[in-house]
Amino acid sequence: MKKWLIPVLIIAVIAFGVYRWAVGFNNTAVVLNENVSEAWGNVQTSYQRRNDLIGNLVNTVKGAADFEKSTLEAVIKARSEATKTTIDPSNITPEQLQEFNQAQGGLSSALSRLLVTVERYPELKSNQNFLKLQDELTSTENTIQTARTRYNEAIKPYNTHVKTFPNSVLAGIFNFEGKPYFDAEAGAEKPVEVEFDFK
């Protein structure tokens, strides 16, 4: 064997090893990124279900003649704001996720005020359509929580893959960036005040 052939073989083996590592990194990152996109799609589907239910709920509540108009308007406005905020899961940033979270949190807050106000209207509380919608909304809120948790679970392996060394070197070359997690909504750390009105 010629002496010049040995370094060429060594370089070829190293190049092939780097190539296989890069291909493996890229393919794994693509698969994990698709899992994140799927999980984000499930989050959006859950929020869309909630928005659809809120429309039906508002229409049912409008039927109560002396119901408080300002509360309904707040829910309608918050719903409109929440549906305007859209995110591309492949380029999600912490700022975008925070804006999305704030819009959805505003809707949750307005919806909570609506449901508390409903307590003053016995004929509405006994309306079967309203009760069914309220149950579906509760179920949907649980689905949203599950979808958000699964989204965070899908992000963890992706972020671990693209942020650990030496993968982080290739992540910069292939433009794979870490993705933000869902955090609790603003104010979630404060205890909920519960008041019972026995009058």
Score class of each variant (00 low, 15 high):
Y19Q: 10
A29I: 10
G105P: 05
T85C: 08
V58G: 04
G172P: 03
A186K: 15
P180Y: 02
K69Q: 15
R113P: 06
L114E: 01
S46N: 12
K125S: 04
K3F: 10
T85R: 12
L72M: 11
A39I: 02
S108G: 15
L133S: 02
A74Y: 05
T146H: 11
V169G: 01
F174V: 12
E189C: 06
D135A: 14
S109E: 13
F67Q: 02
T117P: 09
S168A: 11
A103Q: 01
K132M: 11
A78H: 04
N167D: 06
F67C: 03
S112M: 13
F198V: 13
A103M: 01
P191M: 10
V58E: 04
Q104W: 00
L97H: 05
T45S: 15
Y151E: 05
V8N: 10
G106D: 08
T86Q: 14
S90E: 14
I76T: 15
E34M: 11
A15Q: 04
L9H: 05
R113Q: 13
L137V: 00
V75D: 02
T140D: 01
E73K: 11
L53F: 07
K163D: 12
R20M: 13
P157A: 03
R113T: 12
E177Y: 08
M1K: 12
A188V: 03
K3V: 07
T117A: 14
R49S: 07
D197Q: 14
S90G: 10
N33Q: 14
V192Y: 06
K62S: 10
A186D: 13
N129A: 06
K199L: 08
V75F: 01
G63T: 00
Y151V: 09
I173A: 04
Y181S: 00
T85M: 15
F198C: 09
F25T: 00
W40R: 02
T143A: 14
F130Q: 08
D183C: 05
K156E: 09
G17C: 06
